[in-house]
Simulated assay, not measured.
Amino acid sequence: MRFMVIVKATPDSEAGVMPSKQLLTEMGKFNEELVKAGVMLAGEGLHPSSKGVRVRFSGNRRTVIDGPFAETKELIAGFWLWQVQSLEEAVEWLKRAPFDGDTEIEVRQVFEADDFGAEFTPELREQEERLRAQVAAKS
């Protein structure tokens, strides 16, 4: 099972405050453990929302809204993509992460092809596999 581990923004991350050398060192060690265990598929930090945009879709209209965005608790500061056996395993890994008491993390399972049922036809599955192969070839 794949899980997206979403690190919620804080006032500091939205202000562009960079992590300390100590936190970066501890996070590097934690990420090494994840990689060695075959858990981590990807992981990155994100710039503050002031450097981003949102695109709102309404019918055929597309509206671009510049950041920053008001509700810090709804923003994302970074993410991991993990491969684990269960939500419980993801939570156990996450409990070991070197965050302080002001951090909130959301863990959500990623849909797999079989989750979509009959609507995900053999043709659509083939297209998906072909696209994933193309992405992997560029890595």
Results as ranks from 00 to 15, higher is better:
Met1Glu: 07
Met1Lys: 08
Arg2Ile: 04
Val5Ile: 08
Ile6Lys: 01
Ile6Asp: 04
Val7Ala: 10
Ala9Pro: 00
Thr10Leu: 02
Thr10Cys: 00
Pro11Gln: 13
Pro11Leu: 05
Asp12Leu: 09
Asp12Ala: 14
Ser13Pro: 05
Glu14Leu: 05
Gly16Ser: 00
Gly16His: 01
Val17Thr: 15
Val17Met: 06
Pro19Gly: 02
Lys21Arg: 11
Lys21Glu: 14
Gln22Asn: 12
Leu23Val: 14
Leu23Met: 15
Leu24Lys: 09
Leu24Cys: 09
Leu24Thr: 14
Leu24Asp: 08
Gly28Val: 09
Gly28Leu: 04
Phe30Pro: 03
Glu33Met: 13
Leu34His: 02
Val35His: 08
Lys36Asn: 14
Lys36Tyr: 07
Gly38Trp: 07
Gly38Leu: 10
Gly38Met: 02
Val39Arg: 06
Val39Met: 09
Met40Gly: 01
Met40Asp: 05
Gly43Asp: 10
Gly43Tyr: 04
Glu44His: 13
Glu44Lys: 13
Gly45Val: 02
Leu46Ser: 04
Pro48Gly: 03
Ser49Met: 05
Gly52Val: 08
Gly52Leu: 06
Gly52Arg: 05
Arg54Lys: 15
Val55Asn: 10
Arg56Leu: 14
Arg56Phe: 01
Arg56Thr: 03
Ser58Phe: 05
Gly59Asp: 10
Arg62Ala: 12
Thr63Arg: 07
Val64His: 01
Ile65Cys: 01
Asp66Ser: 12
Phe69Ile: 04
Phe69Lys: 05
Ala70Arg: 06
Ala70Phe: 01
Glu71Ile: 09
Glu71Pro: 05
Glu74Ser: 03
Leu75Thr: 08
Leu75His: 07
Leu75Gly: 04
Ile76Lys: 02
Ile76Gly: 00
Ile76Thr: 13
Gly78Arg: 03
Gly78Val: 08
Phe79Asp: 06
Leu81Val: 14
Leu81Trp: 12
Gln83Trp: 04
Gln83Asp: 14
Val91His: 10
Val91Lys: 14
Glu92Arg: 15
Trp93Ala: 06
Trp93Tyr: 15
Leu94Gln: 11
Lys95Cys: 07
Ala97Asn: 04
Ala97Asp: 04
Pro98Asn: 04
Phe99Lys: 08
Ile105Leu: 02
Ile105Lys: 02
Ile105Arg: 00
Glu106Thr: 09
Glu106His: 06
Val107Ile: 15
Val107Arg: 03
Arg108Leu: 12
Gln109Gly: 06
Gln109Asn: 00
Gln109Asp: 00
Gln109Thr: 00
Val110Gly: 00
Phe111Cys: 13
Asp114Ile: 02
Phe116Val: 09
Gly117Pro: 02
Gly117Arg: 08
Glu119Gly: 12
Glu119Phe: 10
Glu119Ile: 10
Phe120Ser: 11
Phe120Ala: 11
Pro122Glu: 15
Pro122Val: 14
Glu123Lys: 15
Glu123His: 15
Arg125Glu: 04
Glu129Lys: 11
Glu129Pro: 01
Glu129Phe: 08
Arg130Glu: 15
Leu131Pro: 01
Arg132Glu: 02
Arg132Thr: 01
Ala133Pro: 06
Ala133Gly: 13
Gln134Thr: 01
Val135His: 07
Val135Ser: 08
Val135Met: 14
Ala136Gln: 11
Ala137Asn: 09
Ala137His: 07
